[in-house]
Every structure is written in structure tokens, then in C-alpha cells.
């Protein structure tokens, strides 16, 4: 029996009081909780394309692929479908990528320069669209993504400048504007502070879990719209020891994740 690295797993311990056979792992960092929270977006997703944008979502998608969602498809960020070790298993140039999106067998995790309480997202520009104060990327594929398949968002720096009352340009379509579009589904928003979903009667944003060390007050303070907060807010789950080893030793040994989220 071996784990994904090919290294033998320690034998099952019969007595939990026995000392661990390996050096104890350092506790999870904030970035590692974010990786876990992103990976969970692709749990039970089946045989679909995971399209992470950003470092931590990319680590999360590979972690999910290596553990609980082995059927996920991943790309090399260009035109190839690859396994976790880089083995090419298929060809996906941009034009086929767009067909795959329209076909619905995909879950994207995009970034957001702005997002509102219904999940409307902006990556196009800040200010008046006709003459923006800051030109950003453009709508890119946010409209086709949000109307066709599951969409999540990753926002490393949770602030009132990003979590806004109203976005300046709707690129990704929110729940109040989807108008019953048949395949529209906003799954989750992961930030440096916690995980959010839209499990409320009016499908507005709700705090689903806090990363350990974060308070509800801190999240409210960094959010410019009223956020639904349940009476009991759980913490984002701990990574397992196997997951931590995968993140630290196999997927991201250079620790690029801590550059995206500190702490």
C-alpha cells in the first residue's frame, strides 16, 4: 500500500497512544486552509474539467484530483489535458475549451476584482465602463462560464474594495440576474478569511465557514454588504496528514501558496 507519492504509508497504528512514526507536521497555515477550501469545491464533481485560476485554486484542484476526486480533468494552463504528474492525456485548444464550457462539464474557480452579495463578479474595469478609472482584463469568459456550468470564486485579499455593494461591470452573472438560466450555478466563494456560499432564501451570500483564527467580526468588517451569518459558524476543516504532505512535499514544495495568502 502506498500513497500518491509512491512512498510507503506508515502501518496502521493499533494503539493510538503509540508515538507517531514520522516527525510531527507543523500545524496548517492559513494558505493551507485556503487550499483545502478550494479543493472541496471539486469534491464529488465527477468526470469534469476543473479550471482553477490563481495559485491556491490550482493547488486545490490538484489536491482534489490526487485524493477524493480522481476523475477530474486538469489542463496545463495551455492546450493540453494532463494528469497530476504532467502526463498528457488529451488536447484542449481554446476553441474546444469553449465548447466544453458550453457543454457544462466544467467547474471554474475565477478571480474577482469586485463581487457583490448575489455573486455578480467584475474583472473588466473599475468606474464608468465608457471611460474607466482603471481598465482591467475585460469580461473574458466570465459570461459564458457563469451561464453554463458551476462557478466558484477565489479572492485572496478579502476587503471592502472587493466585496462591494454593487459591481461596476457585471462579467460573471449573479443569482439576482440569472433569470432562471437553466445551468447557472454559483457554488462557493473562498477568500483568505473563510468560505461563503449562497444557501439563503434569496440566494444572497452566506458565511459558510471561517478559517481557524478568523472571527465573524473580522469578516463583517471586511465586507461592504450585509452578509448572512448563521448562529453557529463552523471552521474550515483541517487538512488530513496525508493532504498536508501532498501539498508540502508533492504539489507545492516551493511554498508558492504562502505568497498568495500570508499567515
Amino acid at each position: 500500500m502506498s500513497d500518491i507519492t509512491g512512498a510507503p504509508l506508515p502501518p496502521p497504528t493499533r494503539t493510538p497512544l503509540l508515538p507517531p512514526t514520522r516527525t510531527p507536521l507543523l500545524p496548517p497555515t492559513r494558505a493551507e486552509y485556503c487550499v483545502i477550501a478550494c479543493a472541496e469545491a471539486w469534491r464529488d464533481a465527477g468526470e469534469i474539467l476543473a479550471s482553477p485560476m490563481g495559485l491556491i485554486p490550482s493547488i486545490g484542484a490538484r489536491l482534489a484530483r490526487c485524493t477524493f476526486s480522481p476523475d477530474l480533468l486538469l489542463t496545463d494552463g495551455e492546450a493540453l489535458l494532463v494528469g497530476p504528474d504532467g502526463t498528457v492525456e488529451g488536447w484542449l485548444p481554446y476553441r474546444q475549451h469553449l465548447t466544453l464550457a458550453a457543454g457544462g462539464r466544467r467547474h471554474v474557480m475565477m478571480g474577482a476584482s469586485q463581487i457583490d452579495r448575489y455573486g455578480n463578479q467584475n474583472i473588466s474595469c473599475i468606474g464608468d465602463w465608457a471611460r474607466p478609472a482603471r481598465q482591467l482584463l475585460g469580461v473574458r469568459g466570465a459570461p459564458v462560464n457563469t451561464l453554463n456550468h458551476a462557478t466558484s470564486y477565489w479572492i485572496p485579499k478579502h476587503s471592502r474594495r472587493v466585496f462591494v455593494e454593487k459591481v461596476d461591470m457585471v462579467c460573471g452573472v449573479g443569482n439576482d440576474r440569472a433569470g432562471g438560466a437553466p445551468f447557472h450555478h454559483l457554488a462557493r466563494v473562498v477568500s483568505g478569511l473563510g468560505v461563503f456560499d449562497f444557501a439563503t432564501p434569496d440566494r444572497s451570500m452566506r458565511l459558510a465557514s471561517l478559517h481557524p483564527g478568523v472571527t465573524v467580526e473580522e469578516v463583517r468588517e471586511a465586507t461592504a454588504f450585509p452578509l448572512a451569518v448563521p448562529d453557529e459558524v463552523p471552521y474550515t476543516r483541517d487538512p488530513t496528514a496525508a493532504e498536508l504532505r501532498l501539498i508540502r512535499e508533492v504539489i507545492d514544495p516551493a511554498d508558492t501558496r504562502s505568497r498568495e495568502v500570508a499567515g
Binding site: 465602463w129 451561464l147 453554463n148 457585471v170 462579467c171 452573472v173 440576474r177 433569470g179 438560466a181
Partner: peptide
């Protein structure tokens, strides 16, 4: 095309 509906496009 389905894309564009609901967005500011």
C-alpha cells in the same frame, strides 16, 4: 449563444 445574458455585456 447562451453567453452574455444577465451580464453587462
Amino acid at each position: 449563444v447562451r453567453a452574455g445574458l444577465g451580464s453587462d455585456v
